[in-house]
């Protein structure tokens, strides 16, 4: 071994790391190219740490057994993500109830190699009742009532970023999504999908900007966050997202609407590569998202 090992994988190779029953985490913006490939692999019984409509995609595709989510809504006009709501009400998924501070405490505990970390948000609420993994305790220093949040350790964290070199030195445009580094610090392995792979020299030209060092895998997928945004590259595709929500809502209401099946088939199962997906979305649509 005399060559430095590159960390570049294509999207199918990286998705092949995901096996039935694993715990995976998705950053924000959601690494949708990888989400689509995971759906395409038809993995089952995943525990998914995620929020919003990316989580909803995986549930709609039947990949999820358990969710660890602080928010499963879709923003304005979508109070609850439709597939999440239906699956939860029908008992098809287990919901590990939490919130932002509890989730990040559990991730920090994993990152720090601790069995738990304490958190105050949630004291007095129903969260410890509906999630028995959260233990209310009296702290031994000041005698305060707090919640012990057990370490949350994903097998793989998937995040989206602007660029990386071939060795997994990642730089974000304007900083990572709020939860991304919590996920990276906690997870056994990290897969970063990027808009562009750049030279090692480019990274070394500004090492201060490196946000994730030595990610385990780097996947080159321009437009890989579509239909969501990628800072400095494109804005979210609101009509596309609305179409997904409408199909998912119809499926949740009627129990398996063909529109949602068609969506998953057309955008997740059939495109073999990310480039195939982009061709289906179309150049005109994509280029329209490049401007503010």
């Amino acid at each position: 071994m005399s060559e430095r090992r590159e960390h570049l994988l294509d999207e199918q190779q990286a998705a092949a790391w995901v096996e039935h029953g694993m715990t995976i985490a998705l950053g924000e913006p959601a690494p949708m190219a990888m989400v689509r490939q995971i759906i395409r692999r038809k993995v089952r019984d995943l525990t998914v740490i995620s929020s919003g409509l990316a989580l909803d995609h995986l549930i709609a595709a039947g990949c999820v057994r358990k969710t660890i989510s602080y928010y499963a809504g879709g923003g304005v006009g979508v109070p609850v993500a439709p597939s999440f709501r239906r699956a939860a009400e029908r008992g098809e998924i287990v919901v590990w109830e939490c919130e932002e501070g509890i989730l990040t405490s559990g991730l920090e505990a994993a990152g720090k190699g601790l069995p738990f970390l304490p958190w105050r948000g949630g004291v007095g609420t129903s969260l410890p009742e509906v999630n028995p993994d959260l233990k209310v305790f009296t702290d031994p220093i000041a005698g305060e009532t707090l919640i012990a949040v057990p370490a949350i350790k994903p097998d793989i964290a998937f995040v989206h970023a602007a660029v990386s070199d071939a060795y997994g030195n990642v730089q974000h445009h304007g900083g990572p999504g709020w939860i991304d580094l919590f996920l990276v610090r906690a997870a056994a392995r990290t897969v970063v999908q990027v808009e562009q792979v750049v030279s090692n020299e480019a990274i070394r030209g500004n090492p201060w900007a490196t946000t994730i060092a030595a990610a385990d895998a780097v996947v080159r997928v321009p437009w890989g966050a579509h239909p969501f945004f990628s800072r400095g590259h494109y804005i979210q595709d609101v009509p596309f997202i609305n179409d997904y929500v409408a199909s998912a809502a119809a499926a949740a209401k009627h129990g398996g609407d063909p529109q949602l099946k068609n969506y998953l088939q057309h955008y997740c199962h059939e495109p073999v590569t990310h480039a195939d997906y982009l061709e289906r979305v179309g150049l005109t649509r994509l280029l329209g998202l490049r401007e503010y």
């Binding site: 928010y71 009400e89 919130e99 932002e100 105050r120």
Partner: peptide, 26 residues
């Protein structure tokens, strides 16, 4: 969180607490 008597059989599943427990505490 949701509406119903049994957390495992909610009549209406809500979106989850976002950061509101932490924010409202402090």
């Amino acid at each position: 969180i949701g509406i119903g008597e049994d957390f495992n059989k909610l009549r209406f599943r809500g979106p989850g607490s976002v950061g509101t427990p932490t924010l409202s505490s402090h």
